[in-house]
Design a protein around this nucleic acid. Structure first.
Length: 587
DNA sequence: GCCGTTTTCGGCCCGACTGTTTTCAGTCG
């Protein structure tokens, strides 16, 4: 999205690796942290410079701020160019390998002259590494195995897939060993609902005598393709699901350690470091087994996560917020917001039927959704005519669709189905349907479906000025792992959305997740309203609502930020406010 | 390199595991 942030994040990561290799541990850590901060920054770093806010970012000090400014001005960082002369380029990748850290790499470099991955493999296989003092057969085997697993670990899977896999594993374990397993929870980035997931981590509370039995069962699950290690504290395997390989770790704890273990293994790393700093300031020590007083070693918490945070003088923090983006400070002040929840959603505002490219009739959708999700309303939003491949509707067919919805509502005896459209935003920013017909609809989503290689801010701004457009669909058009989103200027869009009374859609399709959490956080800050929609094309797609709610929670959204936590009356009010503002026909 | 009403210098999260040792260094999460 913001290439300059990404560029800088990459440079700082490399500088961190170089300093780590050079043995400057803490300077290295500072650069790694700066890299994470840049990666995570919700806005273009150049705007921080303009607003004079660069120096107020926690973790960015004088030294790194100067380097950011240097990069913005000149396009490079002199110090980085110098450092690159000291260390071979490939070392960043080599340090990523499990089992090789800076010390090992330095010895391989000093004593065997190894500079690339290929040279490393050769030296491992021809026995030169094994002969070094302090090395042995096992260490060599471990490094070779990690080379093999490297490609797997580099690929991340999307949240939806990770949720399916982790739930299958949790159910399989729980159902097969219901007596032995007292508690089981999926932790790590899945519990935080990150967009993409690396490893899958599962915690289990049980009696110590049952640990090996559970581990044995776990490694016998048919999807396990390789056992990395088996023990009483931790067991790790590689599993294969539909040709995708994932590392899965299970860890064992006693019941009274459950809360601190959950806290510890949910992360993120940055959040935990910050929380442990707080503990230290209070003369306490926090680890995965509990909260302890430093002087007397007395254990004062650990059974529950709430208890762990409380012992540190903090409110419990929802996992989705634990990224060290300011939530620790809020928790200390008791000001953690009440985030939107799946159960708060009262309807879905973006749905396709057989009228365009959906696979189910409006009638089937209505009965299914009302029964299964207990929503108060749904809006059918089929494509408009430019989307020929999606069987998009022209004005004439849309009028017929409106009639069908009226009939169905009469039949069901409830005004459950609302009629809308997902209208195309054309290249010049005009819409694919006339105002005359748009004014007859309950809800209008406008989306860009073409020209992905340009900055599309102009088209989106113009579409928002149409009095009948209520939300912008899948803002950047990205498809995770397939297509980068096109450029959109977030600040201008947020400003225009606020000014015109247009909502932003959080599209819940697993590969879209668009807008993303950074947009959401900014929208919350600016008071711009959002809707969470599934963009469903089949009955199974309605389950994606969970994904959209996760994005909203990671952006700290509460019910007041999300329109479809309200009744249909609330939504109608939002629609009419915009129409009134523009002197247009009221609904 | 960052940070701070105990500090502008001297700290920087903490414990487990592994392999190669015989008391510990390196790595990981």
């Amino acid at each position: 999205m913001y290439n300059i942030n990404k560029d800088l994040a990459n440079i700082f990561k490399r500088m961190g690796a170089i300093y780590e290799f050079l043995g400057d541990k803490f300077r290295s850590l500072a650069y790694y942290k700066a890299s994470e901060i840049l990666e995570d920054l919700p806005d273009d770093v150049r705007n921080y410079i303009l607003n004079g806010k660069l120096y107020s970012i926690r973790g960015i000090g004088q030294g790194i701020a100067t380097k950011i400014e240097e990069y913005v001005e000149t396009g490079k960082i002199e110090k980085y160019e110098e450092l690159k002369q000291l260390v071979p380029e490939d070392f960043l990748e080599l340090m990523d390998l499990k089992g090789i850290g800076p010390k090992t790499l330095k010895r391989l470099y000093d004593e065997l002259g190894i500079k690339t991955k290929d040279e490393l493999i050769k030296a491992l296989k021809d026995g030169r590494v094994e002969k070094l003092k302090g090395f042995g057969k096992k260490k060599v085997e471990r490094i070779l195995k990690s080379l093999e697993l490297y490609e797997i670990s580099k690929k991340r899977i999307i949240l939806w897939e990770a949720l399916q896999i982790s739930r299958y594993l949790k159910d399989t374990l729980k159902n097969s060993l219901s007596k032995e397993i007292k508690k089981i929870e999926v932790v790590g980035s899945i519990r935080r609902r990150k967009e993409t997931i690396g490893d899958i981590d599962i915690l289990i509370a049980c009696d110590e005598k049952d640990r090996l039995k559970i581990a044995d069962f776990f490694i016998s699950i048919p999807e396990v393709s390789f056992v990395i290690g088996k023990g009483e504290k931790k067991t790790s395997v590689i599993m294969k699901f539909d040709n995708r390989e994932r590392q899965v770790d299970i860890r064992f704890f006693n019941l009274n350690e459950w809360g601190s273990a959950l806290q510890y293994f949910t992360g993120s790393k940055e959040h935990n470091v910050h929380v442990r700093e707080i503990a230290k300031e209070k003369g306490l020590k926090l680890n995965e087994y509990g909260v302890f007083k430093v002087d007397t070693e007395e254990r004062i918490a650990g059974e529950t996560e709430e208890g762990v945070y409380k012992a540190l003088g903090m409110e419990w923090i929802p996992p989705e917020m634990r990224e060290d983006r300011g939530e620790v400070e809020l928790a200390l002040q008791g000001k953690i917001p009440k985030l939107v929840e799946l159960k708060d959603i009262k309807g879905d505002l973006h749905i396709h039927s057989t009228w365009s490219d959906g696979v189910n009739s409006i009638k089937d959708i209505a009965y299914f959704v009302r029964e299964k999700y207990k929503y108060e309303y749904i809006v059918i939003t089929d494509h408009s005519k430019t989307q020929r491949v999606a069987n998009g509707l022209d004005e004439e067919r849309l009028l017929k669709e409106i009639e069908e919805v009226k009939l169905l509502n009469k039949m069901m005896g409830w005004e459950f189905i609302k009629i809308g459209t997902e209208v195309d935003i054309l290249l010049d920013g005009s819409l694919d349907l006339s105002d005359e017909i748009l004014s007859q609809l309950d809800w209008v989503v406008a989306s860009v479906h073409s020209h992905f290689n340009r900055d599309n801010t102009d088209r989106i701004l113009k579409a928002m000025e149409n009095p009948y457009v209520n939300a912008i669909g899948h803002m950047t058009g990205r498809l995770i792992g397939i297509r980068e989103g096109f450029k959109v200027n977030m600040n201008e869009v947020l400003k225009k959305a606020k000014e015109t009374g247009t909502a932003l859609e959080i599209n819940s399709q697993p590969r879209r997740m668009d807008i993303d959490e950074h947009w959401v956080k900014r929208a919350v800050e600016e008071g711009v309203k959002m809707v969470i929609s599934t963009d469903s094309h089949s009955l199974g797609n309605f389950a994606y609502m969970e994904i959209g709610v996760s994005i909203a929670r990671r952006g700290w959204a509460t019910n007041k930020d999300i329109l479809n936590t309200g009744s249909w009356e609330d939504i109608k009010k939002f629609v009419n406010e915009k129409r009134k503002k523009f002197g247009a026909v009221l609904k």
